[in-house]
Structures are given as structure tokens and as C-alpha cells.
Design a protein around this nucleic acid. Structure first.
Lengths: 119, 119
DNA sequence: CAGAATCCCCTCAGATACTG
DNA sequence: CAGTATCTGAGGGGATTCTG
């Protein structure tokens, strides 16, 4: 019913657990890039299964690109925010601005305080 | 873990089924106000249980206010978008702008086309 | 290193029935 | 009219194990 609406779909995968933190972590990386294991360690507590799932979704949505470097072993895989992904970070900034304006009382998250968040 | 982050919480209830459509429907009402039954009929397919749940959530988040008129019977209950709710509509507009810029291919939703959406 | 495959639990949402 | 109560099925996410 509303599941064909792009806006709703967007909000829907943004709301899935870890997605925002993954995007934020990629954003912080050099060239907005991070490796699988870097992400896994930065996001203490996420399982490989969920991280892989989220990255596939984001790749499918065009928010992230995956590049495999198989020239040596073990294989290196890098994930990078696309242009659309960077634009999405601005959207998240808009949400943060709203939250700070209207929800000041509980503005902290598990990783850092919104007021000092890189966003 | 990330569940204490206001931004994440916001995205999370926005993503719950029907929430966006409820906000949109209130937005369209006179004075951004609608009655329970009006909402129910406008959002064909929603159950009373879910509608009541969503409205409680939105009320709790300060996005909607509830006003009961018990002067006559049956009781009239009206829901109105608050200032913060109206500000949130702007946030959703931002998401729509992103969607139209990067997801043009599937820009329609069950109710109407994004390009003619009131947002 | 970067995953895929399984199993299990828990929340979400639909259907249905009842009430002040 | 505007809800509440209960039950059920489907999907999300954690833990663990295995592999190219």
C-alpha cells in the first residue's frame, strides 16, 4: 500500500537497525570509504550477518558502492558513499536539526552527543 | 545501543507503517486537524488498533495533540499537528526532494504521485 | 578477510470481538 | 464514535558455525 512510495521506503531502510550508524561511519572515513572489518569494529556489537545485509541494501539503493581488491590475499573490500549517499547525509542533518529544535531533552545517542556529532 | 539517539528514534517511528500517511492526512485537514474516523476512512485499510497506536505514539512524541469534545454524544475527538509536527513535515519534504533527485524511477506511492503530492 | 547458512526469539501489524 | 483486548502470522535481528 504505502510500500511503493519512495519516501516511505527511504525512511524505512534508514530506520533499520545500524543503517544510520553505518552511513555515519562511512561518512567519517577517508574519501567516505571504509572496509568491512573497519565498519565492524567501529560499530561494536554488530554481527557480520547484519552488517553484510545492511551493506547489500545500501548498495542496492545506490547509496554505497562496493569495490573488491583481489590482487592479493586476503581480499580487501571497500565500501564508499555515493553522491546520493552524501546527499542523504544532508537529509539526516535535517532530521538532526529538527531533533535538536524539538527534542532537546534527550539528544544523545549511544556513540556520541548529537551536539558534537559529525553531522 | 543506537535506540537512545533521538535522530534514530525519529526515523524509527516515521518508518512505522501508516505513520507518514497519518501525518500527511492531518496536514491536509482544516487547521491541520482530523477526527479519528476521518483518518480511518481517508487511510483505507488501517485498523482501529493500529490507528490508535500510531496516534498515541505521535501524541507522546509531541507531534500531535488530542482534543476530546464531550459536550454531546457521541464523543468527538480531534487530532491536530503541533508546531513540531509541522516542522517535521518540512523534514519529510527534504526526504521527498532527495527521493525525487535520486530515485526518480519509482516515485509513486499507493495514494498519489510524489510529483503531485501535497508535500 | 569478508562473508553465507542456520536457528531462535521478539516485535510489529492484521483480524476479530467487545465497550463507554 | 472512539477506542481496548486478544490472538496469530510474518519479518527483523542476534548468536553461532562454516568457507573461499
Amino acid at each position: 500500500m504505502q510500500d511503493v512510495c519512495t519516501v516511505n521506503q527511504t525512511v524505512r531502510y534508514l530506520a533499520r537497525k545500524w543503517t544510520l550508524l553505518i552511513i555515519l561511519e562511512l561518512y567519517k572515513g577517508q574519501g567516505h570509504t571504509r572496509r568491512f572489518t573497519e565498519l565492524k569494529e567501529a560499530l561494536g556489537g554488530i554481527t557480520q550477518k547484519v552488517l553484510a545485509e545492511r551493506l547489500r541494501e545500501l548498495e542496492h539503493e545506490g547509496i554505497v558502492t562496493r569495490r573488491v581488491d583481489a590482487t592479493d590475499f586476503p581480499v580487501r573490500t571497500e565500501y564508499t558513499l555515493t553522491e546520493s549517499g552524501l546527499a542523504l547525509v544532508d537529509v539526516v542533518r535535517g532530521i538532526k536539526a529538527w531533533a535538536l529544535a524539538w527534542k532537546v531533552e534527550n539528544a544523545t545517542c549511544g556513540n556520541q552527543d548529537c551536539s558534537v556529532c559529525v553531522l
